[in-house]
């Protein structure tokens, strides 16, 4: 499903070259839940960004279903992000001027268009995460945990094959963190989605099928 071959990423700042990711090689099978553990600055978010088609690698290949996504055009990668990938970020990242329902349905706007079917699906997803009564609220009118649930619902709107999660419970308290994590893993299992989750929190990797540990841009 996902195959990284010698993926590396170097940043040049002045005369100094910093290698954020070094010769990473791994495979993720369909439906697998892979956790990538590492401290801050270990390169895990950069790796996730490369796999998600957001950061161009300095070297190596990222193949999804056998195709190198970095050989595609910008528009093809945009379509890939829209149709194949669901993103969950450290922060909820909602559009403050749109309602909960519109935020969940937002990915459809950049794909097939926000049809009635997309809005119905968004409403269903809001129900699954327990926000049926908040669909007409704005992000500023709901709590941080609820915002995170909106973001998770949004990631599943287009029924993605892959979910990339970057510290999905970032700034939540322990109780909310557990709830959100249960919801997230439950939805992934239910949708048979391949998951790549990066975290520095060892408690979160319990649900994963496999864990990779990153340090200084490489896999240990």
């Amino acid at each position: 499903m996902i195959e990284c071959k010698d993926v590396s990423k170097a940043y040049q700042i002045g005369d100094m070259v910093t290698e954020a990711v070094r010769n990473i090689c791994f495979k993720v099978e369909v439906g697998e839940f892979l956790a990538i553990l590492g401290h801050s600055g270990s390169g895990k978010s950069t790796l996730l960004s490369i796999i998600g088609g957001l950061t161009r690698p300095s070297g190596g290949q990222v193949a999804v279903d056998g195709e190198d996504i970095w050989q595609w055009s910008d528009n093809e990668r945009a379509r890939f992000r829209n149709c194949t990938i669901g993103f969950v970020f450290q922060f909820a990242s909602l559009i403050p001027t749109l309602t909960v329902l519109d935020n969940i349905a937002l990915p459809s706007l950049f794909g097939e268009g926000m049809t009635r079917a997309a809005r119905l699906r968004a409403r269903d997803l809001a129900g699954i995460v327990g926000l049926s009564d908040k669909v007409d609220s704005y992000p500023s009118e709901i709590s941080g945990g609820q915002q995170r649930r909106v973001a998770i619902s949004r990631a599943f709107l287009n029924d993605p094959k892959i979910v990339l999660a970057d510290e999905p419970t970032g700034d939540l308290d322990e109780a909310t963190e557990a709830q959100v994590m249960d919801l997230f893993t439950g939805m992934c299992r239910q949708h048979k989605t391949t998951i790549l989750m990066v975290t520095h929190n060892r408690d979160l990797i319990k649900s994963a099928d496999r864990t990779l540990v990153m340090k200084d841009g490489g896999i240990l």
Partner: peptide, 16 residues
């Protein structure tokens, strides 16, 4: 920037 970034991450093309 955050908003534009989010749109891009969610699959918005340059034209959109």
């Amino acid at each position: 920037l955050r908003e534009i970034g989010l749109f891009k991450v969610l699959g918005a093309s340059r034209g959109q």
